[in-house]
Design a protein around this nucleic acid. Sequence first.
RNA 1: GCCGCUGUGGCGGAAUUGGCAGACGCGCUGGACUCAAAAUCCAGUGGUGGCAACACCGUGUGGGUUCGACUCCCACCGGCGGCACCA
Length: 808
Amino acid sequence: MVYDHKSIENKWQRYWDEHETFKASDKSEKEKYYVMDMFPYPSGQGLHVGHPEGYTATDIMSRYKRAKGFNVLHPMGWDAFGLPAEQYAIKTGNNPASFTNKNVQVFKNQIKSLGFSIDWSREINTTDPEYYKWSQWIFEKLYEKGLAYEDEIMVNWAPDFPGGGIVVANEEVIDGKTERGGYPVYRKPMKQWVLRITAYADRLLEDLEDLDWPEAIKEQQRHWIGKSVGASVSFNVENSAKKIEVYTTRPDTLFGAQYMVLSPEHELVDVITTSEQKDVISNYKKEVETKSDLERTDLNKDKTGAFTGAYAINPINGERLPIWIADYVLSSYGTGAIMAVPAHDNRDWEFAKKFDLPIKAVIEGGDVVEAAYTGDGVHINSGFLDGLSKQEAIDKAIDWLTENSAGHKQINYRLRDWIFSRQRYWGEPIPVIHWEDGTQTLVPESELPLRLPEMTQEQLKPSGTGESPLANATDWLTVTREDGVKGRRETNTMPQWAGSSWYFLRYVDPHNSEALADADKLKYWMNVDLYVGGAEHAVLHLLYARFWHKFLYDLGVVPTKEPFHKLVNQGMILGENHEKMSKSKGNVVNPDEIVNNYGADTLRVYEMFMGPLTQSKPWSEDGVSGSRRWLDRVWRLLIDDEDKLRDHVTTVNNGDLDKIYNQTVKKVSDDLENMRFNTAISQLMVFVNEAYKSDALPIEYMNGFVQMLAPIAPHLAEELWARLGHENDISYVEWPTYDDSHLVEDTLEIIFQVNGKVRGKATVARDTDKDAMLELAKADENVQNFITGKEIRKVIAIPGKFVNIVVS
RNA sequence: GCCGCUGUGGCGGAAUUGGCAGACGCGCUGGACUCAAAAUCCAGUGGUGGCAACACCGUGUGGGUUCGACUCCCACCGGCGGCACCA
């Protein structure tokens, strides 16, 4: 009988379901192991072959750890809020909720068909009111602690969009136009909810140290947080009581400041501009307003700016500095104003060249006529800083600024607060009520969840005011207090990041109606031991989740400072042509077809055998059929044409497989421990190749082999396990061990080198010493060809490995 | 521009500590089985030369350290990902 993947996979998937094989117990003497994937957005397209890569990796780890005696939590859920469902609803009139649930069903069936050992009783869905109740609860806590506030934020406003205008996300803006329809986009300030993530900047930075994460991701987060140490310096404006505050990392170059630049949006611009310069300035501001961020940065090769007519006084030497505005200074970083030191800053240098401003060198080294010099050096033309090096001068300048009340040491971050509101329907409602008396309150905790109202297709269309479509839900929108005062609900909803910032906590206790999760259960399960997902979430998701987790830690809700101990990014699976899979390139592979034609076990084996988990690698249909052929080969090794266990599987051990079996147990265990699935599979292949050469297959070794196969190809392994005569399933059978004594042999092969090149080999006794090795080498015919008539200058010998004769 | 990753046969990849480069798989070639084919099993397979033993070359490029370098150091080139006027 041939290996029939369909019946085997159906049989065992049903078995696991019926026996609740993978249900994780919250109380156990065993050590816990919490392993999870980044949960998917259930799109209408269904699963992609990229999904099962990470899922298979976590499943192998789950199954391996169960066999190693751990109590494993391996859950799955749905990140189901998001724009596509809302757009689909507007287009077709379908309800986003039912559309989403349909997609979830498709995803779930597909994932189940791959045989992952997931505890489905813990399935969660971010759009479930019982789930988002707690997303809202966390928001309320942030609000109470002053970490959620409203602010005027620049948004992408497309006023011509049908229906009367819509706010679009950055990624929906292409060349200054909306991705859909191509309507022009303007930047416009709008009141938005913002979360004070910057309050956690230092901790988010410091605690990266202890995490077992890829260095690349940590580096990206560090850069994103962007901590810098410098000084705040205050400049008086000539003939004015106003002061301009700047942030600089180079207070040592203060004597080289030649002009100042404010960002066009700086609040002092209109105040200090002289009447002669008013038109110039307002024209420049208008010019900048229509520019997107991209145009102000990427596409801007040429510095632009305008003179305000005003002057500031350099506190360190009393010099008059003209005040300019320019879009190369960003309002969102530092104070939105800089002191320009053209001799020692590239951007200031370019600006000075363009507008013919003076350039004064204050550090030796480089030619400031040709380019800005940003390196270290001896300070010149700098009064009391002359002769000092960079760091000495920085320290001394800060001391001077502090003593003279002109500034102080300052730490700055690139990280900005998290804009938390979206002008959308399909997201968690923000539980705030704006009362007509001008006050604002949270929806009382007892009334959570604040559910999304049902909306018609007509209501889901843009409100026209830039508000979310929830502004159209009249009944839901207005509330009346006991004292008769009317209120209007907040119409903004939360971003998709909200639900994904804490879902790993909910898996621990998914049905709790009293708390987001029970404290004891959290204490047992947290933190996540292994988290696998794509590198595209390097910064945002992982930073937001860390922020919320730290906040919850401060509240005493969670017991750990960090949510994810070990993070692994799986690489991308490319198309056969080595390009990213996409519909337009026609190189997309549908996992359903692979499961149908070859089986889930084949897909799992292939995706793990392709190469290292973390690297991108191209798909190959030949590779898939090769993996299937190997599983066929495994089947035939144990099962004969009559569908019976082969006769040569016996209790007799003739010793043929002793060495290779023990080697295999050692290598496979070690490889799985380190998630080197490709080499683990290759070792299993080597073992099968050897087993094919042996007349007798000791049942003990066959049991061990099937166990090692089980994490990778679980359906086939369960079937073979049963046919090997076991009554119980394989999931919790203790992992095989190896016997070291079979790994050492009495004789081994050593190599003879001359000048580092291999010239011969010999099999020798294990304990052959250096001198004996050298004699054997000298006696080797080919070695003699290279040493005869030459002087032996040196001999390097490592017993058991090699002897190297160095001749002149 | 900056940060990170990466470069090995016809292809995917292996080499865990500086010690036989190319494990394993795909593909290809040959053999066995078959009337034949497919499937399967067995063997071979980096390049050049040689009947062979073997020799020379070979891990992106150029240099270096070392008895010995895919591995360590310096400089450069290509590919992928991320960030980008951050003062």
